Amino acid sequence: MTSGREQHMTRAVSAADLAPTTYAWQVRTTGLKVRVGRGRMAVDGLDLTLGTGVHGLLGPNGAGKTTLIRALATVLRPAAGSLELLGETVGGVADHRALRRRIGYLPQEFGYYKRFRVREFVEYMAWLKEVPKAKIPEAVQRAVERVGLADRADERMKALSGGMIRRAGIAQAIVNDPDVLLLDEPTVGLDPAQRLRLRELLQELGLDSCVVVSTHLVEDVAAACTDVVLFAEGRLVFQGTPEQLAAAGGPEHVGDSPLERGYSALLADSGRNGGAW
């Protein structure tokens, strides 16, 4: 497997990379509202800015994390407020195909043809993302190497374990060297060693991109993320560094670590109970 430094040096350069940057933040929302179904506003008046780095998205079940990730992936359109990605306003009837070429997205559950080999699956996703044909083989090889699947690249998806399928999903998300990378629960099914490697990969990717990671695992946030976004009932509760999150809690708060106690304290202060049973 190539080193993080070598991977950084071989990153493909596109016309978008050479174009002047005209935005201050890769992600900016103002009063963002996103509806799920006909009634519930799962994201409700969110003001948020995210730049280059790894941003951990935390929150209890039902907080709206997945809805926010889907909105950032342009799968869901805003019901109100504004959403800007890479300087482009998302919403209305605009065609966002060019923008989607610059986004990588791993949903909690993703579809694939079980008879596809790993390499074929990632190639197919690269084609959908309109990676130039001549660059696809190199881009696919680099992606499968970065997730540790180079030795399984010619195996069929149906033969893989759950953790390997998740890693194949991460590979398709990064095959286009995205400027914004959205990962919804990427550590599901990964063993401890694989989680450690994913943390290293996230840190590498965060050098050049805006990486948003939704997770329930607070320790992953501490190890990989440059900042933390705490989300509850569709609203922003906290945004700051892992150290600031840890400092928000005390011995009297629920949790096995300073980060977990800070998480509990902030939810309690905001009036949310964190999804008590």
Rank of each mutant, 00 (worst) to 15 (best):
E260V: 04
R272H: 15
A126D: 08
V147H: 05
G234S: 05
Y124M: 03
K133S: 12
P186Q: 09
V54M: 12
G275Q: 11
L76S: 07
L196W: 03
A80R: 15
G51D: 13
V90M: 04
G111M: 11
I170M: 08
C225R: 02
D227V: 00
A126Q: 09
A232G: 14
H253A: 11
L245H: 03
A222Q: 10
L202S: 04
G206I: 13
K129C: 01
G51C: 04
R70C: 05
E219R: 14
R102P: 06
L183M: 10
R167K: 15
M41Y: 10
P242W: 05
D269A: 15
P60I: 07
H8Q: 11
R117V: 00
V27A: 07
K158L: 13
A79Y: 10
L85S: 01
L57W: 02
G62D: 02
L201D: 05
M164E: 15
L230F: 01
M164Y: 14
G111Y: 05
L83N: 03
A232Q: 07
D17L: 12
P258S: 09
Q203N: 10
R11W: 06
Y124P: 00
E145Y: 07
G31A: 07
V144T: 07
L198D: 05
P78N: 12
P137K: 02
N273C: 02
E6W: 01
Q108K: 04
A268M: 11
G255K: 07
T10L: 14
H253V: 02
A265P: 00
V43M: 09
V213Y: 00
D208P: 00
E130G: 00
